[in-house]
Every structure is written in C-alpha cells, then in structure tokens.
Design a protein around this nucleic acid. Sequence first.
RNA 1: GGGCCGUUAGCUCAGCUGGUAGAGCAGCUGACUCUUAAUCAGCGGGUCGCAGGUUCGAAUCCUGCACGGCUCACCA
Length: 491
Amino acid sequence: MEEINELIAQRIKKLEDLRELGIDPFGGSFFADDHAEDLHRKYGDALKESLAADPVGCSLAGRIIAMRDFGKAAFAHIQDTTGKIQVYFKKEFLGEQYTLLKKTDIGDIVGLKGNLFRTKTNELTVEVKEFVLLAKSLRPLPEKWHGLKDIETRYRQRYVDLIVNPDVRKTFIMRSMIIKAIRDFLEAQGFIEVETPMMQPIPGGATARPFRTHHNALDVDLYLRIAPELYLKRLLVGGYERVYELNRNFRNEGISVKHNPEFSMLEFYIAYRDYRFLMSLTEELLSFVAQKTLGALQVPFEDTVIDFTPPWPRITMLDALLQQGVPQEIVTDLEKAKVWAKSQNIDIQDKISLGRLLDEIFKEKVEPLLVQPTFIIDHPVELSPLAKRKSDNPALTERFELFIASREIANAFSELNDPMEQKQRFMEQVEAKLKGDEEAHFMDEDFVRALEYGMPPAAGEGIGIDRLVMLLTNSPSIRDVILFPQLKPEQ
RNA sequence: GGGCCGUUAGCUCAGCUGGUAGAGCAGCUGACUCUUAAUCAGCGGGUCGCAGGUUCGAAUCCUGCACGGCUCACCA
C-alpha cells in the first residue's frame, strides 16, 4: 500500500510548501452556511442584473472536482453533499490568497466565501472573496470524463466511487429513504422496533449455514444469527403484539449478485392476525414505500416495469405448478415426481423429499415467470418447519412468498404456536441434520419452553431489504446497494 | 467448487502473425482575467497482476497462482 508515485510526491511537495508559508493543509473548522443545490434552487432563476445590483453572499465547503486556470483567474467546480456549483477565483480580488490557489489541486477540500453572479454563459457562479484549504488531497482522482469504472476498485475503495459517481451517492440516499419509509409505515401501524441477539447460542429461524465464533470469558461457541425469528416470537409470548427488527443477518454461504454474507432483513410479527392479513399489509407497505421514495407505483427495472399497484395475484404453490404443465399425478407421488423431474432435466439429489422436489420444480418452472408482484401461498409443511398448518389440509401451511422480478422478496406465515407440534418439527429437523442436512434447523428447547407459556396466534414476515433496494433503484447486483460488499482481502 | 472472460501510466483504454510500450484525460513548466471535456507550446510518468516455462528475443505463446467479473452448482 506504500506506493509513492510521481503524482503523490508532487502533492506532498505542495503540502510542504504550504506549511512553509504558515498555512495548515488540514485546516481548522469552517462552518459553511450554504450548499450547492440550495443555491441553485434559490437563485437558479435570479437575473444577472439583480444579482449584480443586490449582491448575495454565501459560504460553501466542499471538494474541488474540476479546475480551469487562466493565469490571473480560474474557474473551478466545488462538490458538496448536495451537488456541485461553479466558483470563480480572480487574482484582483484575492491578492495574496491567489498564491494558495496555485498550490491547490483537484480533490482538495476547501471552504470559501463570496458573492453569487452569472457568467457570460449565464451559469450561476460564486465569485470567491476568501478561501481556506481544509484538507489537502494527496491522491489524484480518477479521470473527469470516464470516471471510475473498474468494478473491483469501486467496491474496494467505495469512498472514491462515491466522490466521482453521483449515481452511486444517489443509490445509497435512496436506500436510506426506503428504510426510513419502512420504519415510518410500521411505526404508524403501532409496531415497536426491537433489537435481539446477533450472537446466538443456537442459530434458528431459517434454513442456512451460520458463522461460528467464540466468547472467551464464557467459553462458549456462539453463532452469528441467520434470522431473528425465534427471539421475536419470544417477545410475542412476552406480550408485545407488534414488533419488528430491521438489521443484519449473516449466512455462511456463497456470494453472488443476489447474496452477500451479511445482509439486511426486516422481520415483523403481529399477534392475533394471520398470513392473509399480512398479504394485504405487504401490499400496503411496499406500495407506500415505492410511492414515498420514487413518487410512483410503476418502477422501471431492467428491461421491464414493475407495477406495485395492489392487489397482487395470490396463487397456491400447487396451482402455480399445475399451470406450468406439471402433471397433477406427481404432486402427491415422490417416485413419479422424481421421474418427471429427471425427464425435465432438473437436477435432483436421490434422497430428496417430495416437498423439496416440488420446490426445485417450482424454482425451475414457475419462478422465472413471476415478474410482477405475485404471492405464492400454501407451501408443503416440510418446507416450513415454523409455520402453522392449514386447518383444511394439514400437509400444507399458511404461508406465502412474495416474488417480484423473479426474486423472492418476502416470506411470511401464520406462526406455529403449538409447543408440542413445534417440538415434533424440531425433532424432524434434528433427524435431517443427523442424516447430513447441514441446513436443517437446530433444536431450540428454550423456544419450545416459551411456546409452552402460550404464544398468541400471530403472523410474521421477513423482507430482504437489499433485494428490495435493488428493485427500487434498478440495481443489477446486491453489491450496488451495499456500501462495502464482502470481497477477498487485497494481496 | 466447475466453465468462460479480464488484469498494460493516477484514471479510461489501444497494443495485429512474438522484435525493447502508446493515446486521451490527469500531472509538471510556460502563456492566457468569462471557462465549463477551456485553449496553445513543451516535458515527465510503466515490475505490462505475480511466479515459472518456451524462445536469440515475451505485454503478446504455454503452465501455475492471485484478484475481479459473468455463469453453473451450492444457497430462500
């Protein structure tokens, strides 16, 4: 990392020159009153003559991102958190300070005061009366025209990506707005936000491989949570009726455009309601978020437009399969299903259960077609060890998954609150684990004990925040919506 | 983990069948008081991802490795 090239050496030289002149290259505080976009908004329409007759003073702080030098005058663009504005340095007005300009580089952070005026080309510009260097930049920025394109550098040095790519800054502002809109919606519905352990002795609530760590003082192994579910349901036992948690989960699995080892998940639980209620609530929530952050229910994504206008179709998993030409006879017959799957070139393991096999077929035949928001409901019980059975068909559960743009965005169900059955389902998972299923759930005795005190009937849902942000910002990769995505270390 | 592709100046990229490495921007010096990819003149800047191999000679061909991208597998 100790690369000293000519460009950096030149900047260090300028820094030393400044120190000799008694100027601190990492100057003190500078409280600017204005931001670039505010000035454009307030004075974008102001006439040249009125700005000249009635001077408007302003102060700005930001980074120099372009410079056009004329010897005794210079134009530059200053970028702050809101945007950029042109500034004009003139020797005649700056006197001594003009020498400082000669030691200033693109990338330096400066504070300045001056008056607004319009140039010959009518661009709103600040005529600088005084300026200070707030931070000398020792590294050259990427080129002004092509910017920074190298994907690896963009992720590893996100700070540079953010400096030079305004769209990236915008994406993460959108992310913040989306999360705020979700919180606003849930708070308005009477939910409280809670924080449950990220380090758990028993990782539960999802089908996934956990990260393991160790606490020295207690001398116990702990797992980074794969989901907060079992803790949130303990809170329902405790008497809260509406809780949510919006925070990180960790899964020790592959990395792809849709997977990062740590990712953000919203989970919320509501007592005395069921999964049908949650479908309507989900329609309200996501259309609220789209409207609030994009101002529309139609959202461009890749080569299509996603329409969030409710209601969204609700199709049972089995109907969805049948509609895509899966023969009726195989949905209840494992052996026939295996034969059919093979005839369709679907790769399956030999020991697979019927439920999982149907899930595989679903992923292959149905998922790619679910572009507009669609609820897939009533999954087989073996896929859903924490969900309540349907009263009229105990092989199925009161569950839904929401698909948008062929991705799973939400997963929800009426919660199983029968402690005996929950214990039985855990036992089945433990058996599967013993047989080598690394993702089967762990037995959680304390969770069963909690249920034994009585958990009200309830519905719960998880929404993948990163994938939602991808949808709403039209981002092709999860790495485009996570500020510092996981990469292998350099060197 | 498999397959395919990529890695050349600070950045964006050329570099053909192997013959000692190029452009634009950025930088430096000089000129220039309304430019906005400013302009004009001149100059500097490279472990061609790393390590081997083939060859008289490798950025270029071969092998291995590293990192990244896409994709398949895995994975809600």
